[in-house]
Design a protein around this nucleic acid. Structure first.
Length: 277
DNA sequence: AGTGAGGCCTGAAAGC
DNA sequence: TGCTTTCAGGCCTCAC
């Protein structure tokens, strides 16, 4: 399940392995992903040279030198792999053949069993105003995600703090796992109303979200240091979970048993003592 | 308008 | 053992 840290890791890997290559061919499977493939997409991207790869929320953006950008999302089961030869695997949905004057050709494949992901092409100039990105909240690792920013958002909403930090219109890239982990680190109960958070608690939460994501990027990256095979495989951050998936197990801080509650249909884990209401 | 529920989708795991 | 059900997750659409 690619969370923001894994997307970041994949992006770093792509940047090292595919920048400079040109797209020689592009093939799709017949199955639809979250958004359908555009029929004219193939013509637009063929011949384009990859000049940059970066992350925006959990989206991977690949800029081409012809003014077109590929936008890829891994959903929850998506993986990108790269290899010098293409051998078909179940759930391959897009296959890009990349060529370069200086290196052997390379195949980049999007594989996504659950098809929650997407791959589309849009003009680079329109990325910022595209439907997918228009109403997007702050990047959690950027300065715009400040204590004051979060505090203001908390005041204007009627929902639990857990729902608020998972809302992409507030802050992007905080999935179910990192919401639980960050709230534990900040010692804030996930069930409390966002309006009840003090400024100091917001400050603590901002720092906790940043720290949790950064640690995950570090441990996600460590297993993927060798990018000879580009992969979306999970890193090692799951061994660092303090509360997620630990229902009924003792809290590492106080030995109280970890509880879980369903908030908006999502399992949420917390320590009832460390995260008192 | 803002909020929350439901749906998409497959495969692993749990339940029977 | 083999079948069925449940659950996981991001993000979109759609009622209230």
């Amino acid at each position: 399940m690619p969370e923001l840290p894994e997307v970041e890791t994949v992006v770093k890997g792509l940047r090292r392995s595919v920048v400079g290559y040109s797209i020689n061919s592009l093939h799709f499977s017949s199955k639809k992903l979250r958004l359908p493939f555009q029929l004219d997409m193939v013509e637009e991207v063929i011949g384009g040279q990859i000049i940059n790869v970066y992350r925006k929320a959990k989206y991977i953006l690949i800029n081409l030198d012809n003014g077109i950008s590929l936008v890829i999302h891994l959903g929850m089961s998506g993986k990108l792999r790269a290899s010098s030869e293409y051998s078909k695997q179940k759930h391959d949905h897009a296959v890009l053949e990349l060529i370069s004057a200086f290196s052997p050709s390379l195949y980049m494949i999007l594989n996504d069993p659950r098809r929650f992901g997407l791959i589309i092409a849009i003009p680079t100039a329109e990325v910022e105003n595209h439907k997918l990105f228009l109403k997007m909240g702050a990047e959690p690792l950027d300065a715009e995600f400040s204590s004051q920013y979060l505090f203001n958002k908390c005041q204007n909403r009627v929902t639990t703090i857990k729902n608020l930090i998972m809302d992409n219109n507030v802050v992007v890239g905080v999935g179910n796992i990192y919401a639980s982990e960050s709230l534990f680190l900040a010692r804030i109960n996930p069930l409390i109303s966002s309006k009840d958070l003090t400024y100091d608690e917001c400050k603590k939460l901002v720092l906790s979200i940043r720290s949790t994501l950064n640690k995950a990027i570090e441990s996600g990256g460590s297993t993927l240091r060798d990018y000879s095979q580009l992969s979306g495989e999970a890193g090692r951050f799951q061994h660092l979970f303090k509360v997620y998936g630990r229902k009924g197990e003792p809290c590492y801080e106080c030995s109280t048993l970890i509880k879980s509650s369903v908030i908006s249909g999502r399992n949420t884990y917390y320590c009832p003592k460390c995260q008192k209401i």
